[in-house]
């Protein structure tokens, strides 16, 4: 299966190891991963701030760059939701580009969604070298991806040594919201402090955050105010478990 990785600008620059964990996981399950180097941004910041024409320019570019891909997989929930929820509307009045836009949308998946819906992976044979308690931040944009029911938690729980601790107010936004975080820092700060406090109360060592922006936000607030958990992308946990190989679980 040929999979093209859409890394997203934040992950590219700030969390490259998340990208590598995604690559290793996909390759482990037999995908032929490729990285179209021309990719830049999906246009989400422009769209959210009220510049749909700008977003459309970048959307058209995305469609072009990923033309040859069977599947497009991205580790960032909000970028995926931008494509899935808003690209169809961006091209609604454009008979020429709409078909390829819809077709592109249909091939785009969020990382966990791809593992559960397309690859249908089974992680029960794998385990982490050390026991880890993890909690899970429900990133808001999963709402648009029909990923309620948290398949990510289910998937991680298959891994040996990986225990789930529920998070208080799990459905409450972390306060990132793109430019909102810098335009309204006081409100955003109050929301993310709440998230860090809820995370600390779980006593989990790891908070799973599958979105580049939310991870920067919760991680940064955690460092400022003191958190007892590390912010990780699910791909990092999965890749670590896969590294041990199948036999690891039986030992």
């Amino acid at each position: 299966m040929k999979v093209s990785l859409f890394i997203t600008c934040l992950t590219d620059l700030y969390a490259p190891t998340v990208g590598m964990a995604v690559v290793k996981t996909l390759e482990h399950f037999g995908c032929q991963v490729d990285f179209p180097a021309d990719q830049t941004c999906c246009g989400q910041p422009a769209f959210n701030n009220g510049y749909p024409e700008h977003a459309r320019t970048l959307a058209q570019r995305m469609i072009e760059v990923f033309k040859k891909a069977d599947y497009i997989v991205t580790p960032s929930g909000s970028c995926c939701a931008m494509i899935r929820d808003h690209y169809p509307h961006l091209f609604a009045d454009d008979e020429v580009h709409q078909p390829e836009a819809l077709e592109f949308v249909g091939r785009t998946y969020e990382f966990i969604e791809f593992l559960t819906k397309i690859l249908k992976v089974d992680l029960t044979p794998y385990r982490l070298p050390e026991p880890v308690d993890f909690t899970y931040h429900y990133t808001c944009h999963l709402r648009g991806l029909e990923m309620t029911g948290d398949p990510c938690i289910g998937l991680l729980r298959q891994i040996g040594n990986c225990r789930f601790v529920p998070l208080e107010k799990a459905e409450q936004c972390c306060g990132f919201g793109g430019t909102f975080a810098t335009k309204y820092p006081d409100i955003s700060g109050a929301i993310v402090r709440d998230k860090v406090q809820c995370g600390n109360r779980t006593r989990a060592q790891v908070m799973i955050v599958n979105d580049g922006g939310c991870a920067m936000n919760i991680g940064g607030a955690g460092h400022r105010y003191g958190s007892t958990f590390a912010v990780r992308h699910a791909a990092e946990i999965i890749a670590t478990a896969l590294e041990g190989g199948k036999d690891n679980a039986r030992r």
């Binding site: 890394i7 992950t11 590219d12 620059l13 700030y14 969390a15 490259p16 190891t17 990208g19 590598m20 690559v23 990285f35 180097a37 975080a181 810098t182 335009k183 309204y184 820092p185 006081d186 955003s188 700060g189 993310v192 402090r193 920067m216 936000n217 991680g219 940064g220 607030a221 460092h223 400022r224 105010y225």
Partner: peptide
Amino acid sequence: GPVAGWTRVRDFPRPPRHDFRYLWKEH
């Protein structure tokens, strides 16, 4: 500048030495 608002209430990540593109090439 534009990220002063960010660091008023939380820290900002320092970008690692190598970006994903570099790691990908190595891989």
